[in-house]
Design a binder for these strands. Structure first.
Length: 973
RNA sequence: GCUCGAGUGGUGGAAUUGGUAGACACGUUGGACUUAAAAUCCAAUGUCCAUUAGGACGUACGGGUUCAAGUCCCGUCUCGAGUACCA
């Protein structure tokens, strides 16, 4: 008999909790009535609960994915019961690499696969896809689907493109500390040149006067402005991934290889769009303090921003007019400088190297260039370097300082050069020791014969002229003052945060709303957006190495009609003198994955006029920012930082009213799979049961978890049928069964440990799935999935159902008899605990609380509506289907989500007596029930007179008796 | 290396301010019901000693503070996450 038909019979015969029917019924009810559609006008206070929206992959959901959605759904439903107007939307981050790679393999348009992945269907390989939406719907979420977003829809990415043009038309003014329209910069230039402009901009911009500016050609002006815009084109060294054929952002690289696929990444110079996020470094850092996020995520962002306070020092070169600028956090150790080290890639190295040293230096540069980023990172112990033969001059002593190169200095951080103070920095120390360079000691009373001394707090400066005897802080201050006096440096704050490369050489992303006229980028106005992705034959780079959009034939912009037209119409260089027809080539790159996800939370606020606005002012003023954001912590340096940047920018330009997107965030832990292993004896087709495999040479093989029961026994027949190569396999059993080994691993198809939520819903119901996922453990913790344990929660729901029904006939049996004192106590204890738990996101303990309540109430044989009605409301956030069903059976016609959360009344919990633990020397021996209003002395007297006390004392006299009324009695002695 | 977190039964995990360690489940064992299985119900279940009564030991390890420590302090170990020649 199949599981399904067995279950059906069992349902009808012995129990009336038909979860499949109940759940289907209420899911349809909610959808038909639009129960959870939020209104943008309400007298109720607003509350915005958001999940990080998913990328709809073809693999579908496994039980790990809904964890965060269930938690946010519990919270959203709770807030509704508490009288809030709740916005709880959902959508799809539907641009991305997997759909594109699938398109490359199968030729299927990514838009088609994306749609199938969301809505279900059959792909062109004949695979049946359940569809994200269908899978989500089965779990009974209270999403407002009327506000759905898909980042790959043109009506959505129109506004992603618009934000890009806004960034292009803005610059960052450090004086006002916000982004301003580019026109304010233009007028400042026209009035006073760029001398007094304090802007976030490229390095090394030549100064010019107002007169010079006004004389510049339009093109010259644009070139200069591009160096100030918040998104700009620049030839930058990027992380190029040849295997993926695209550049990657720093946060898309893990351990020197691509996050996706683990491919090699090399450095390459390319002209790319960049986002001037570094302008916001300080605000992104400061803003963290106001956020209710986990300390670890905030710390991750602080590290990523990497603020360090110190000074720049410039060293004159001997026999050369150039200077070397360095950044240091220890200007107090300036007299300890005994050499300088430059990154080998710096252009300056070639200029200063003396002829005698040239051979050695070139050889060293060649050898470091060969080493990949990864090798350099893996090998930090080997000290390498070369002397350039050149010398710098100490700013105070004027002593010559030898200049070395070494790959421990990174070209990408600071100026790519360091002043080496071997006595105060271990890397400088090791370098000096290795190459026999002097190690002058500038610390008082410190032995540096073994290692460098880096303890700032214990620093007292010595051998340093005017700094002698000073502690760290004072010495830093004075050193900077003196450096400024001699014009050799100044205080400076450095950030590790780099500008973000924004171009990707891919098809399946937002096209840039950009065309090029005389090599200069021009933005397409918002009224002509969206600029839709063109159709192409193949989703690969062109033969000339251009991005996939280079394959499009109709990909030029007619600036007169504001339409996309055929490439053939672009004035070709061959006919240089032909008249400018206003038709120009469009940008071939597309935007990265994080573009669409950096503002989607605003889009949900607006559902009416999505073509006219990215979100209306009224909607944004009403909803403000996200009150609760739930998602994985893996986005710590990507999405969560970029979104904050865009929000701050949009705020600066007056488009939104909030400064931070996500006020409170909870990061759910991963649900891990419990893999099953069978053990094949080496060079055979014989499988040994776990207990027999111990001392044998066996190869563990993943077995699908579906073939294993709760007692770790393998369904041998199913396993044999699974793969042809196992058809004739022999199985050596122990005690008549084949036992598998178990191991906790990440849930993944390749490990055959994936558990599908659809199957759990089918077999146990969505309410069981929801409660079980919450019951597994603390939300933020990683925890293994174990399907066997689900029966506990399922049995509880059956028991819960029975509370409202008469056992034998299973008829609805809730009465208006007044509730007993005990039942009211159980109810109010539960109200209190559940409310506290939800507010603390301690969902696992409230599931226990429900179990305790059900156990108590069924023991009390409680049938009172007075208790059972509020109880149904209490459980509604967790198990909404069963709650709705019971609610309607109780005679209500509205959804239970319209009900109010039961009010806790302390009076039901007031006790008159306490069961005191009586302990001896801190060890509890027995308990004694005593009235709570008993005085301390009386308690002591009663306890001491008790026969058990006398028995435990065995004639001894206690030294001391501690009585804490209402808590404990402890007898010492 | 640095930063942050965490170590509690066979398993997942409770113990909100120091006050009865192991709630609630899973699993296991035994029992009831059944031709049987499933389901349901009942009982036991930290470890060790003891026939019972009861006792001893128990929250990674070693110390400490306290009448009382899973909880606070010091040190050590292990695991996880983040990050890294960042000057």
């Amino acid at each position: 008999m199949s599981t399904l038909s067995r279950k059906r019979i069992y349902n009808t015969l012995t129990m009336k909790y038909h979860f499949n029917e109940i759940e289907a019924k209420w899911q349809k009810y909610w959808a038909d009535k639009g129960t959870f559609n939020a209104s943008n006008n309400s007298d109720k206070p607003k509350y915005y609960v958001l999940d990080m929206f998913p990328y709809p992959s073809g693999a579908g959901l496994h039980v790990g994915h809904p964890l965060g959605y269930i938690a946010s759904d519990v919270y959203a439903r709770y807030k509704r019961l508490k009288g809030f107007n709740v916005l709880h939307p959902q959508g799809y981050d539907s641009f991305g690499l997997p759909a594109e790679q699938y398109a490359i393999q199968t030729g299927q348009h990514p838009a088609v696969t994306t749609k199938v992945n969301i809505e279900g269907g059959v792909d062109n390989q004949g695979n049946e896809i359940a569809g994200y939406r269908n899978q989500l719907d089965k779990i009974g979420f209270s999403f407002d689907w009327s506000r759905e977003v898909r980042t790959s829809n043109p009506e959505y990415y129109k506004w992603t493109q618009w934000i890009f043009t806004e960034l292009f038309n803005s610059w960052y003014n450090y004086d006002t500390n916000k982004a301003e329209g580019i026109e304010t910069l233009v007028s400042a230039f026209a009035k006073e040149g760029n001398g007094n402009i304090n802007a976030a901009c490229d390095d090394n911009i030549e100064p010019f006067t107002a007169a010079q500016w006004n004389d510049f050609s339009e093109n010259e002006k644009q070139v200069i402005l591009l160096q100030y815009r918040l998104t700009y084109l620049a030839e930058t060294e990027v992380n190029w991934c040849p295997a993926l054929g695209t550049v990657l952002a720093n946060d898309e690289i893990v351990n020197g290889v691509s996050e996706r696929g683990g491919h090699t990444v090399v450095r390459k110079k390319m002209t790319q769009w960049s986002m001037r996020i570094s302008a916001y470094a300080e605000r992104l850092l400061q803003g963290l303090d106001s956020l209710d996020w986990s300390e670890s995520i905030k710390e991750t962002q602080r590290n990523w921003i990497g603020k360090s306070v110190g000074a720049t020092v410039s060293f004159n070169l001997k026999d050369h007019d150039k200077k070397i600028e360095v950044f240091t956090t220890r200007p107090d150790t300036i007299f300890g400088v005994s050499f300088m080290t430059l990154a080998p890639e710096l252009d300056l190295v070639q200029e200063i190297t003396t002829p005698e040293q040239k051979e050695k230096v070139d050889a060293y540069i060649a050898s470091t260039a060969k080493r990949s980023e990864r090798e350099r990172m893996a090998d930090v112990k080997t000290i390498t370097g070369a002397f350039t033969g050149a010398y710098a001059e100490h700013p105070f002593t004027k002593e010559p300082i030898p200049i070395w190169i070494g790959d421990y200095v990174l070209a990408g951080y600071g100026t790519g050069a360091v002043m080496a103070v071997p006595c105060g920095d271990q890397r400088d120390y090791d370098f000096a020791k290795h190459f026999g360079i002097a190690i002058p000691n500038v610390f008082e009373g410190v032995d540096i014969s073994e290692e460098a001394f880096a303890d700032k707090a214990a620093t007292v400066i010595a051998n340093s002229d005017f700094l002698n005897g000073l502690k760290y802080k004072k010495a830093v201050k004075l050193a900077i003052y003196e450096l400024e006096k001699v014009g050799a440096g100044s205080g400076k704050t450095n950030y590790r945060l780099r500008d973000a490369v924004f171009s990707r050489q891919r098809y399946w992303g937002e096209p840039f709303p950009v065309y090029y006229k005389d090599g200069m980028p021009h933005m397409i106005d918002v009224e002509h957006l969206p600029l839709e992705l063109p159709e192409i034959e193949k989703y690969l780079p062109t033969e000339d190495g251009e991005p996939p959009l280079g394959r499009a034939d109709v990909w030029a912009w007619d600036s007169k009609t504001n339409k996309v037209v055929s490439n053939d119409l672009v004035r070709s260089s061959a006919v240089e003198n032909s008249e400018d027809n206003g038709i120009y080539p469009l940008e071939l790159n597309t935007m990265p994955g994080w573009a669409g996800s950096s503002w989607y939370f605003f889009r949900y606020m607006e559902k009416a006029q999505r073509d006219a606005v990215f979100a209306s002012k009224e909607a944004m003023d009403y909803w403000g920012n996200v009150d609760l954001y739930i998602g994985g912590s893996e986005h710590g340096t990507g999405h969560l930082l970029y979104s904050r940047f865009w929000v701050k920018f949009l705020k600066d330009r007056g488009h939104v009213s909030v400064d931070e997107p996500f006020q409170k965030m909870i990061n759910q832990g991963m649900i891990l799979g419990t893999s099953a292993f069978v053990y094949r004896e080496e060079n055979s087709n014989t499988f040994l049961s776990l207990g027999l495999s111990k001392d044998k040479q066996v190869q563990p093989i993943h077995a699908p978890v579906a073939f294993v029961n709760a007692s770790d026994e393998l369904d041998v027949e199913a396993f044999k049928k699974w793969r042809p190569e196992f058809k004739d396999a022999e199985f050596i059993l122990e005690d008549g069964v084949y036992k598998v080994g178990r191991e906790v691993e990440k849930m993944s198809k390749s490990k055959y440990n994936v558990v599908n939520p659809d199957e759990i819903c089918e077999q146990y119901g969505a309410d069981t799935l929801r409660m079980y996922e919450m019951f597994l453990g603390p939300l933020e913790q990683a925890k293994p999935w174990n399907t066997a344990g689900i029966t506990g929660v399922h049995n509880f729901l059956k028991k819960f159902w029975k509370l409202y029904h008469n056992g034998a006939e299973a008829t609805f049996n809730v009465t208006d008899t007044p509730a007993s004192k005990d039942s009211l106590k159980t109810l109010h204890k539960t109200i209190k605990k559940v409310q506290e738990d939800i507010e603390n996101f301690s969902f696992n303990t409230s599931v226990s609380t429900f179990m305790i309540a059900a156990n108590e109430l069924s023991a009390q044989k409680c049938t009172s509506q007075e208790v059972l009605e509020p109880l149904a409301i209490l459980i509604a956030p967790y198990a909404p289907h069963i709650a709705e069903e019971l609610w309607s059976k109780l005679g209500h016609t509205e959804s239970i989500s319209e009900a109010g959360f039961p009010v806790f009344e302390e009076k039901h919990l007031v006790e008159s007596a306490k069961n005191y633990p009586i302990s001896f020397n801190g060890k509890m021996k027995f308990t004694l029930e005593l009235p709570l209003d008993m005085s301390k002395d009386e308690i002591e007297k009663t306890v001491m007179a008790h026969e058990k006390t006398q028995m435990y004392l065995d004639g001894r006299t206690p030294k001391k008796v501690i009585v804490v009324p209402g808590k404990i009695v402890n007898i010492v002695g």
